[in-house]
């Protein structure tokens, strides 16, 4: 993939983006050590449709893009609110 066909800002060269990894939900604060280690160190790496963070550097925007890693094509853009989760404060 040399170009990201971003559904929101159109096709842009991939060098304008910084990859931010797969969208993953951190384990609960009381999760056990194994679950935490799994979250921190393990990635599936299996081909398929992934939701990934892509930062568009010139515009300073994050996108969550659904990408099929088998065909290396961007399928759609997900509103970030869909992947947001409340962060407890106290």
């Amino acid at each position: 993939m040399k170009r990201i066909d971003c559904p929101e800002i159109g096709p842009r060269p991939i060098d304008e983006f910084t990859y931010g990894g797969e969208v993953r939900r951190p384990p609960q604060a009381d999760a056990d050590t194994a679950a935490l280690a799994d979250y921190v160190f393990n990635r599936a790496g299996a081909p398929g449709v992934l939701r990934e963070w892509w930062h568009h550097d010139p515009s300073g925007r994050w996108f969550v893009l659904e990408r099929d890693t088998r065909t290396d094509t961007v399928l759609r853009s997900i509103p970030i609110t869909e992947v947001a989760h409340a962060v407890p404060t106290r």
Binding site: G20, H55, G60, A84, H85, A86
Partner: peptide, 14 residues
């Protein structure tokens, strides 16, 4: 750092 702060703001809906 700005990038990570921005992402964290988005994730936490801050």
């Amino acid at each position: 750092t700005r990038r990570e702060l921005t992402r964290e703001a988005a994730i936490g809906a801050f």
